[in-house]
Every structure is written in C-alpha cells, then in structure tokens.
C-alpha cells in the first residue's frame, strides 16, 4: 500500500507548454486571417441568398415536375458515359502499374522515380476537363476524346496511389525471393504485386466511380456522354428536362457506388 501512495505522489500533470499554446494561437490567427483575406476575392455575398430568395425559389420551381419523356435517350447517353469511364479507367490501370512501380523509392533509384513522379504530377495537375478540350481538338468531338482525357488524368492519380501502396510493403518476402537468385522483375512480380494487389484493386474501383462522375461533365466540352445533353438543356432553359437528367445521373452513380463497394469488400 505504501508503495502505491508513493507512486501516486510522484505523478504530476504536465505543465502547460507556453511555446506550444502560443504556437497554436498563431496558427488559428493565420487561418482566420486567410479566410478574411479571401472574402473579397471569392466575392462572398451571403445576404444575396436571402434578398433573392424569391427569385431563386421561382427558378427552382422550374425544375418541377421533372420531364422524363425522353428518358430512353438519357439512359443511352448515361450508358455511353459509363463506357467512357470503363475504357478511361482500364487504360489508366494498365499504365499505372509500370508507372506506379517506377515511382516507388523502395524499388527504383532516385534518378528513375524523380522524373517519373514529375511526369505523373503533370498528368494529375491538369483537370480532365482541360485534357478533354485539348483532345476534342486533336481527335474530334465525341466519346473517344473523353476516354483519352480520363486516361491521362487517372494515370497520374493511380500511379501515385499505386506507388504509395508499393512503398508500404513488407520488404522481407522480397528479400526471400532475391535470395533464391530471382531477377529484379521477378522480385516485383512475385514479392511486391501479391502484397499490393488488394489495395490496387480497391483504388482502381474507387477511381472508376469518380471517373463516372467526371465523365458526366466531359460532354460539356464536347467529349461525349450525358454531359452534352445536360449542357444543351441548361443552355436552352429546359429545366424540367435538366431535372430529369440530374435524377438519372444520381441514380446511376449511386448504383455504381454500391456495386463497386461490394466488389471492393470482396477483394479485401
């Protein structure tokens, strides 16, 4: 018992670290200063929401009831959108496997992974929409331009995610394979890929979902799919039709989300 009270006496609550609390105050100050600074640039006018409430409710009422008379065409276009996402994702997975490995610092020397990483940064930094506009010029209007845009952008994203998975592997099985006299490529195929495969599949499915979402707007710049229909309806003030398209997009995107989540659970 004496032992216990002795240990209790020696316990002390750590004193407030002045440096750290000032540090966190400064951090918050900077954060709020940043918000205030950006107010004007972002043209923040919250009271307009209240002032123009009537106009907006009138605008919103134009969406109802949704006009589903052309649903067949919408569904066809959504299906094309999904097909754009399927091809765009598939091509980028194929490219991301080698690029992802060439981005990993535990597999290749710095003079390989640095340039490859910068290349992938470039592919990732530019939005799909920008690529789509460029490819529409290069290969003409239509879904193929959309596929190419998704392909390039998604390769940049997946290669980074893939390489992060590779950098987190357990190195000991790879060493076990090296010790048998295997080549470097064989070490990757038998030692690295089996370890990262579940994560890779999961990332790929996630990118497929988000590519379907991206593909719904690619049509706005003429790269095929439901986006084209959506844009025409909005520009023509056909709000009932627009509402119908939006509802169908929401349904199909949610369905795909559920489906890919199931698939992901199966592989992990």
């Amino acid at each position: 018992m004496s032992n216990l009270s002795e240990t209790q006496k020696s316990i002390e609550i750590p004193a407030h670290d002045l440096k750290r609390s000032i540090g966190s105050l400064v951090m918050w100050a900077v954060f709020f200063a940043l918000l205030a600074m950006s107010w004007e640039g972002a043209d923040m006018r919250p009271w307009d929401l209240i002032e123009n409430a009537e106009n907006m409710s009138q605008f919103a009422s134009g969406f109802f009831p949704p006009d589903m008379s052309q649903w067949k065409m919408y569904v066809e276009e959504i299906w094309i959108t999904i097909q754009i996402a399927i091809w765009g994702t598939a091509l980028s997975i194929v490219c991301s496997i080698p690029f992802g490995i060439l981005c990993s610092e535990n597999i290749v020397p710095w003079w390989v992974y640095q340039p490859v990483r910068r290349l992938m940064d470039a592919a990732r930094a530019i939005n799909e929409m920008v690529f789509a506009m460029l490819f529409v010029v290069a290969v003409g209007l239509g879904p193929f331009a959309g596929v190419l845009a998704l392909w390039i952008h998604t390769t940049g994203v997946l290669a980074k995610l893939f390489s992060e998975a590779v950098e987190a592997i357990d190195p000991s099985p790879v060493e076990g394979i090296r010790a048998t006299g295997a080549t470097g490529l064989q070490e990757v195929i038998f030692g690295v890929i089996p370890q990262v495969l579940p994560l890779w599949i999961s990332y790929s499915l996630y990118r497929f979902e988000s590519n379907v979402r991206s593909a719904t707007v690619l049509g706005i710049v003429g790269a095929g799919g439901i986006g084209m229909v959506l844009w025409e309806n909005i520009r023509g003030f056909y709000y009932a039709e627009t509402a119908a398209v939006i509802i169908l997009i929401i349904i199909s995107v949610s369905l795909l989300d559920v489906l890919s989540q199931r698939l992901r659970k199966m592989v992990i």
Binding site: S172, P173, E175, G176, I177, R178, A179, T180, G181, F190, G191, P194, Q195, L197, P198
Partner: peptide, 16 residues
Amino acid sequence: RSDVGVVFQQFNLVNR
C-alpha cells in the same frame, strides 16, 4: 545466390 538457400527468422514467404 541460386545455389544458396536462405531461411529467415520471419520466414519471408509471400503471405498472399
């Protein structure tokens, strides 16, 4: 290396 088999404390098999 192919003439030398190495057995490790942590087995170093590929789990999956």
